[in-house]
C-alpha cells in the first residue's frame, strides 16, 4: 500500500519513471515490459500473454483493432474480461483511439489497420512515457523496444484424423536493438 502510494507520488512529481509491468509466467524471463515502451509481436497468443500479466495484477488492459478477439482464449491466459476494453473497429481514427486508451489503460494491444509513419509513432511514444503505459503492437511498428516472434510452432496432440490440439511447442525469438535471443516454450 505504502509502496503503491509512493510510486503514485513519484509519477505525479513529473520525471516519468520506468516501471516494470509483469507478463504472463510462461513468458517470464523472456521479455520484461517497461512502461513507456512499445513492443511488437507477430502472434495473437503472444500479444495476449504480454497483456495477461498486467490484467492478472489488477490493471486495466485494452485491445484496439482486434475484430477477431478470442474472449475465451484471453480468459485462459488469465485476462480479466471485466477489466478489458475492446475497440474492435476503430476505423480511420485508430491512432487517436489508441492514444486515448493509452491515457487510461496500463497495457494497450494494438492491431494497426494501416502502416504508421515514424512521426505519429513518436507522438504516441511520448504519450506512453508520460502516462506510464505499455503498447503492444501485433504487426509492424517503426521503433520498438523489443520484437517477439513465434517460430517453429509444432502442435502436439493432433495426428492425421485423430486426437485434438492440446499444446504447442514453439521457439520465441526476441530481437532487442539488433541483439537476438530465443527460447523454447510450451504453450497451451
Amino acid at each position: 500500500m505504502v509502496a503503491a502510494l509512493q510510486r503514485r507520488i513519484e509519477s505525479l512529481q513529473g520525471a516519468p519513471t520506468r516501471l516494470t509491468v509483469p507478463v504472463h509466467p510462461a513468458l517470464e524471463g523472456l521479455v520484461q515490459l517497461r512502461t513507456g515502451a512499445s513492443y511488437a509481436v507477430d502472434s495473437a497468443s503472444l500479444a495476449l500473454g504480454l497483456a495477461a500479466g498486467a490484467s492478472r495484477s489488477g490493471e486495466w488492459v485494452g485491445f484496439a483493432g482486434w475484430d477477431d478477439f478470442g474472449a475465451e482464449a484471453a480468459t485462459q491466459w488469465g485476462i480479466d474480461l471485466r477489466r478489458t476494453v475492446l475497440v474492435p473497429e476503430p476505423g480511420e481514427l485508430w491512432l487517436e483511439v489508441t492514444a486515448a486508451l493509452v491515457d487510461v489503460l496500463k497495457v494497450v494491444v494494438l492491431k494497426p489497420t494501416a502502416l504508421v509513419d515514424a512521426k505519429s509513432a513518436s507522438v504516441l511514444d511520448a504519450r506512453l512515457r508520460a502516462r506510464s503505459s505499455v503498447l503492444v503492437v501485433w504487426g509492424e511498428w517503426p521503433r520498438v523496444e523489443a520484437r517477439l516472434s513465434a517460430e517453429r510452432v509444432v502442435w502436439d496432440g493432433v495426428g492425421r484424423g485423430r486426437g485434438r490440439l492440446d499444446h504447442r511447442e514453439l521457439r520465441v525469438a526476441v530481437t532487442r536493438g539488433g541483439q537476438r535471443s530465443a527460447r523454447d516454450l510450451v504453450l497451451q
Binding site: T75, V85, V87, E96, V104
Partner: peptide, 24 residues
C-alpha cells in the same frame, strides 16, 4: 473512474457502440 472517463472520450470520437466489453 479514470478508465471510464478515457473510454467516454473514445466513445465521443467513434461512437457509443464502438467500444465494447467482451463477455463469455
Amino acid at each position: 473512474e479514470q478508465v471510464t472517463r478515457g473510454v467516454a472520450r473514445v466513445q465521443a470520437m467513434i461512437g457509443f457502440d464502438a467500444v465494447r466489453s467482451p463477455v463469455l
